[in-house]
Design a protein around this nucleic acid. Structure first.
Lengths: 156, 156
DNA sequence: ATATATTAAAGGTCAAAGATAGTCAAATTA
DNA sequence: TAATTTGACTATCTTTGACCTTTAATATAT
């Protein structure tokens, strides 16, 4: 017997057949499949991961919702490679980061100006307060940015 | 579904398209959108903040009204305003930061994409390792970026 | 006329209720 | 044992309502 989670996954995939981006209501889904709302989170976090080419964003509160996006386009694999690489490490130096940023510029994924913004945000100066964990924070910042860039490839 | 507050925000923004300053009637707005008057205050205080580059003044009593103004200025002066503001504080929340970024986009100082990169780099997720000093690190990142942007502005 | 009190017409504040979604760990199932 | 399911608790955003403050206009008293 197929698990409920798999059914939910299938259903969502069907919804995305003709859309690279859909809005979901967690409560509505949970209701439709007669499961707890948190199971929807479970499905999203196990089946709609970045590695599989998806991106999830959400808003709480009144008229909140979950935005599920499919990552498409030629940049996908490059970003995905970088993402995977970053997830495998706990910390990264400014210089090594610069290499990554350089590659993003070279491959036309980000502009010069964008590279400068990223460099500024992960500079030692920016992170000076993060005593001892500068390099860890830097990884997380890079990961967040890579995710955002992935989102961008969805939108156009 | 979009929240009523967002609709009201949009409406007000439209009214301001060709005016840096408009007069609003709280009661009239509440009536138009079929909401409680205090929801207008909510919209103003969450969407038309000073950080976003707006100024709200109001007068009570007979023929009272709300005066909503867009803070304008050259790119240089806006950046400098923001810089000064940031230097005065030791920490900043993600939401307040978002307001600043909103303003940078609104005033054409950064692109939408650039705003996404900045948001990603200062997100709680990015800074999660910075136990206890998340908001301090955030200020420093913003300052670094603003400085870089200023440098660019000057140089061309 | 002038000063003062009253009233009506704005707008403000704040906290509670409502509407979503997220997290995490325990219980269950395959 | 690993994957799934559930539920209690948390976080965030929106909407509403009761009560408060300010001001202009008007009525009233001198």
């Amino acid at each position: 017997m197929e698990s409920k989670s798999s059914c939910i996954e299938k259903y969502i995939l069907e919804c995305m057949l003709n859309n690279d981006s859909i809005k979901l209501s967690r409560a509505e889904l949970a209701n439709r499949f007669n499961c707890s709302p948190s199971q929807i989170n479970y499905v999203l976090s196990t089946r709609f991961t970045h590695d599989r080419g998806f991106l999830v964003q959400s808003k709480r509160g009144g008229s909140g919702c979950i935005n599920l996006m499919k990552i498409v386009g030629s940049e996908e694999s490059i970003l995905s490679q970088i993402y995977t690489g970053l997830c495998d490490i706990k910390s990264i130096s400014y210089n090594k980061s610069s290499d990554i940023i350089y590659r993003l510029v070279r491959d036309g994924i980000i502009s010069d100006r964008e590279s400068m913004i990223i460099s500024a945000s992960i500079s030692d100066k920016s992170l000076m307060n993060a005593d001892g964990i500068v390099a860890n924070v830097r990884v997380n910042i890079l990961i967040s940015i890579i995710l955002e860039l992935s989102r961008r490839t969805v939108n156009e």
